[in-house]
Design a protein around this nucleic acid. Sequence first.
DNA 1: CACACGATTGTCT
DNA 2: GACAATCGTGTGT
Length: 175
Amino acid sequence: MARIVETEAYEQDDPASHSFRGETPRNAVMFGAPGRSYVYFTYGMHFCMNVVSGQAGRGAAVLLRAAEPLRGLAAMRASRGRASVHELCSGPARLCQAFGVDRSFDGTDLVRRGDLWITEGTPIAASSIIVGPRVGIGVGLELRWRFSVKDDPFVSKGRPHGGATRSEKTGPSTR
DNA sequence: CACACGATTGTCT
DNA sequence: GACAATCGTGTGT
């Protein structure tokens, strides 16, 4: 179980989004019902997980980039190899590895409690949410759709994140 | 069918 | 800070 502390949004009219060029076998889940997980394989070795966030047919999702481990740390370490608590879930692929998320979780209903789900967590003050450009993309940098908890030690090290704060809502938890 | 390229991470210098 | 690892996917021939 972990508390999500960093996310990025992707939309269909967004050159950085996997859904930008339309539906394909890989991103099909993105165009389906919201609340499901879109898991993709990248760099020949990593999985990353998103929460489908648009209406069916829209192709929008939120990438989960980092989380604070809360329970089941031993299992996370077993999946990731010995690592400090700060390195267990601080990155989209690390998070997936810690939770054992692979392509078989593509399309999982994250609203319903099952093997993997997300539920509402403790509210985070709008003033504590940092907004900035997304990480690891070459286009769409003008969109500041990366959100993270200010000064949270479990945020990924993808890039310095000194943006302005903005309004948002909560910090849920997974499994 | 061939090929270029990742919404990354870990290791080495 | 630089770079290798490693292969599914999308695009073009």
